[in-house]
Write a protein that binds this DNA or RNA. Structure first.
Length: 630
DNA sequence: CTTAGGG
DNA sequence: CCCTAAG
């Protein structure tokens, strides 16, 4: 038997992408295998750092703590694939220079605040602007990373020096590390001590600008005046699905009406379902060729451009753990203190990579790896801040630096940044070298980032409207960008964490930006929930009273012909729920209350038309019997 | 494509 | 809302 598979589920005008469907047998396996092959930027970094540390942990006492942390992280993350490590070039010695960053560890160097996009220089100072945080020059792979020693119950102090780090919003990796801290060691020794990190193995979570002020990509986030760290702390308890949230994308005004329903952030289950649905659909259809575990498609070769400049714009991670400091029982000498540190922030700058169009995914991965490696290789600088003030004398003992007996431990922060000024030998291009035609080149990024996939309350009903609202985006979606997006998404770990290349109109450069849910319903994207309003219900009831149940297409045309987001299936479903609502007690009803009068009409119409249908059926049957007998 | 019904 | 069998 041939089973027809409908590709267009929706009604006219409601565009639902033709999607392959996975056999229902696979439905139960939605979220089963997702994370396996994911390689988040942090993973990538962790892998690199891990390799670095492997090479140097025995030979160098000055291995940057971040590497240690990253290594631990990498080790704990089974998802770090060996292939990435294998392909990584041998790492040379790391020049780790203890260097003190400026207060707050942010933008100590003018270059760091130099951005290629932000035409508005007034935004460059002080708190980082969105653009600044988005486009960090590659000379700082790890910028403004801050370790912080804090007591478990001392949240406020853990923030020391951080709030000023606007750039820390860019990427926060609050890995918690544990340090055996000899009280008499000098600051340099302290760095190496971080090697004994005890990293929490949880995968890096994504910063959602909605839930964290760490990603102020959209203006609406200004409403949230919580400090990043406070937010971070607040998210501890529920950091479960950070990785599902879009890092660079905010959904400022969506879901305005129904605060209790926020699909983008509602939780993993929903979004995971979404992605799992994507996966299974894709797998079933096999129309996308090789699919990543995120349902991504790889089609790099199909691009028309000869060179792809990839812009690793930004990656953000946020890992939140309760800030704790563990004091081990003092040894006989009583000079060891176990301290838990955490990386407050961790910034990866944008990278520009030239990749031939016939490059393979593997080569792309290797290139990214090489670039990251080269940057790390060039050296990381660790800074120690005590109460926001940098400690520049590496020879000073901790006691001399008044870092002792834990009394100041909660005030210690660490900064990590790349050695400035190096250029990559792997084809990395710093922003200035890009042939951007002015700052406009990056406009699409901003658009995409802040773009709201669905604006439930304001975008209007027409899908087309939204598409038209952002021609650049549309262009991006249909071009080669899409294929690259798929590729990149494969490497990124979480949905929201995925970095997506976006075509730059004025150049052929591809920008990789944190993925933002597409305005176009992504493949397998569940439609946004749009509760029926009272007028809609009234219209529906009236139409059904007129036409009856079972003629949903007509009902649609009669009462909802101008609303594309209501399919006749939706109307049918709504009627179903209305009937159910009318049949239950008012106390059991949820959502916007429907007037009882309307519900009565629903029941009446339902009873009437069901009776009619039965009569039709019986009449039909009798007619058939008659005709057959006659 | 529509309808119907379960999820 | 989604998914799908069936008409």
């Amino acid at each position: 038997m041939v089973v027809r598979k409908r590709l267009d589920y929706g009604s006219r005008g409601h565009q639902v992408p033709a999607m392959p469907r996975v056999p229902s047998s696979a439905r139960g396996k939605r979220s089963a295998r997702r994370k396996k092959d994911e390689m988040s930027p942090f993973d990538l970094l962790a892998t690199v750092a891990g390799t670095l540390l492997v090479d140097h942990e025995n030979s160098s006492n000055n291995a940057p703590s971040i590497n240690a942390a990253a290594l631990t992280y990498a080790r704990k993350r089974k998802s770090v694939k060996a292939e990435q490590c294998d392909d990584a070039p041998p790492l040379k010695s790391i020049a780790v220079e203890s260097c003190i960053a400026g207060s707050g560890g942010v933008c100590a160097s003018p270059r760091q605040s130099n951005i290629c996009l932000a035409e508005n220089s007034s935004t460059r100072n002080g708190t980082d602007t969105v653009l600044e945080s988005l486009t960090v020059k590659p000379d700082m792979l790890v910028r403004d990373s801050v370790f912080s020693c804090t007591k478990s119950c001392n949240r406020a102090h853990g923030v020391g020096g951080i709030p000023e780090c606007g750039s820390s919003r860019s990427l926060e990796a609050t890995n918690q590390v544990q340090v055996q801290q000899p009280m008499d060691g000098d600051t340099t020794a302290l760095y190496s001590l971080v090697s004994s990190v005890d990293l929490d193995g949880r995968p890096p979570a994504l910063v959602s600008s909605d839930s964290s002020s760490g990603v102020p990509l959209c203006i609406h986030d200004k409403d949230r005046n919580t400090s990043p760290l406070c937010h971070a702390e607040a998210r501890h308890a529920a950091d479960r699905d950070d990785d599902e949230n879009s890092s660079g994308c905010t959904h400022p005004c969506t879901m305005g009406n129904n605060k209790s329903y926020m699909p983008q952030y509602t939780g993993d289950s929903r979004i995971r379902k979404m992605f799992a649905s994507k996966i299974r659909k894709a797998a079933r259809n096999k129309m996308c060729g090789e699919m990543s575990n995120k349902g991504s498609k790889l089609n790099l070769g199909g691009k028309k451009i000869s060179t792809t400049r990839q812009r690793v714009q930004r990656a953000m991670f946020k890992r939140q753990k309760p800030v704790r400091r563990h004091f081990t029982p003092s040894s006989a000498k009583g000079i060891l203190t176990e301290v838990k540190l955490r990386i407050k922030s961790f910034t990866i700058p944008e990278l520009f990579i030239e990749i031939p169009e016939n490059a393979t995914v593997g080569s792309l991965k290797r290139t990214v790896m090489d670039v990251v490696t080269s940057i790390i290789e060039s050296g990381l600088r660790v800074g120690v801040l005590l109460q926001g003030k940098s400690i520049q004398d590496d020879n000073k003992t901790l006691r001399q630096a008044r870092i002792c007996h834990g009394e100041n431990l909660e005030n210690i922060d660490f900064t990590l940044e790349c050695e400035a000024g190096q250029s990559s030998s792997h084809g990395v291009r710093i922003p200035e070298e890009m042939d951007f035609h002015g700052a406009d080149a990056m406009k699409p990024l901003a658009m995409v980032k802040c773009e709201e996939p669905f604006s439930e309350t304001k975008a209007g009903y027409n899908n087309q409207q939204r598409v038209q609202a952002s021609p650049n985006r549309v262009q991006s979606e249909h071009g080669s960008v899409h294929s690259l997006f798929e590729t990149t998404a494969h490497e990124a770990s979480a949905s929201s964490q995925a970095i997506v290349p976006v075509a730059s109109p004025s150049s052929e450069a591809l920008a990789i930006v944190p993925v933002c849910k597409s305005k176009r319903p992504a493949i397998g994207q569940r439609r946004i929930r749009r509760p029926f309003s009272l007028p809609e219900v009234e219209a529906l009831v009236e139409a059904v009273e007129q036409l009856g149940t079972g003629r949903w297409r007509d009902v649609k045309m009669l009462a909802f012909d101008n609303t594309d987001h209501r399919t006749y299936v939706d109307l049918k479903d709504k009627w179903k729920t209305l009937v159910h609502t009318a049949s239950i007690s008012p106390q059991q009803r949820r959502g916007e209350p429907v007037p009882q009068g309307l519900l009565d009409r629903v029941l009446a119409a339902q009873a009437y038309w069901s009776q009619q249908q039965q009569q039709v059926l019986s009449g039909k049957a009798s007619g058939q019997a008659c005709s057959s007998s006659c």
